[in-house]
């Protein structure tokens, strides 16, 4: 078998790397890599190839030989003509596709972790500092399991009377009104939700809803109602107990590192 020329080898490595990054990594191994990152990797590969071929003078000449032959040799006429047509055609199509591209709407960046206010309130009543307020019924879990069950049961009732429309029967954020709300309702089965927040934070999010989100970090667009208009304080605390009881996730407690 004829040995591959250095130029062909380099070309194969270059194309191979691109195919690997663009298709193999993106579809088989993990999620697609952004175009700019691929471009950066490909730049590095070009530099590597250049370093490799320019280390020795003979190697550089060997690399250039096929290019040279294609450009001037009489017995490479067919290849020359094919290339002289293909390269301009490719550039024509590529430039056109860039210019004629449709403009797409701006993405919807979203800060998933709004900062809570310093104080937790219910309507206008101040309950306490966000860093100190605890679920008044949480201690029953150890002190009085029966009373605790009653609170969880009440939380369950509150949840299925009010929340499951959006947050789902299984608390997975897939209620029957959920699919067409933007942004999607929270999925409490996601380990990134309940364990990341203190109960005072959950109380704040439930009681003040979408309109109570801070001015910083917009756009929020949340469809979460202002539940303090419909639920009592105790009902909100109970539903928080239910969320963690059903999913098995414990809200973050004070003193734990973030």
């Amino acid at each position: 078998m004829k040995r591959l020329s250095l130029f062909t080898k380099c070309l194969i490595i270059f194309i191979g790397c691109w195919v690997f990054l663009r298709f193999i990594v993106g579809n088989v191994i993990s999620v697609p890599i952004p175009g700019s990152v691929i471009a950066m990797y490909m730049g590095l590969i070009i530099v590597a190839i250049l370093v490799h071929i320019s280390v020795e003078d003979t190697r550089f000449r060997e690399f250039l030989r096929p290019i040279h032959e294609t450009l001037v040799d009489n017995n490479r006429r067919v290849r020359r003509r094919v290339i002289a047509v293909l390269i301009p055609l490719f550039l024509l199509g590529y430039t056109y596709s860039i210019i004629a591209q449709r403009t797409n709407p701006p993405g919807n960046p979203r800060d998933a972790h709004p900062s809570p206010p310093l104080e937790i309130t219910y309507k206008d009543e101040v309950i306490g500092a966000t860093q100190e307020v605890e679920n008044p019924f949480r201690h029953y879990e150890k002190d009085d399991p029966e009373a605790f069950r009653a609170h969880v049961e009440n939380g369950k009732r509150v949840y299925y009377d009010n929340c499951f429309y959006c947050h789902g029967d299984d608390l997975d954020g897939q209620g029957h009104f959920a699919p067409h709300i933007q942004p999607l309702p929270a999925n409490f089965q996601d380990p990134g939700i309940i364990p990341n927040f203190q109960e005072s934070f959950l109380f704040w999010r439930i009681s003040k809803g979408g309109p109570g989100l801070p001015a910083a970090g917009t756009p929020w667009d949340s469809a979460m109602p202002i539940w303090e208009n419909y639920l009592t304080k105790d009902e909100i605390w109970d539903v928080i107990l239910f969320l963690s009881d059903y999913t098995g996730y414990q809200p973050r407690t004070f003193g734990e590192g973030h």
Binding site: L92, I99, P105
Partner: peptide, 26 residues
């Protein structure tokens, strides 16, 4: 909730000028 709409711009006439130029240049 909020969706978006756009008055789709008339495609730029540049799309008939630049690509042939680039091809010729190459």
């Amino acid at each position: 909730s909020w969706y978006a709409f756009v008055l789709e711009p008339v495609p730029s006439s540049k799309r008939f000028i630049y690509p042939p130029l680039v091809a010729l240049l190459s």
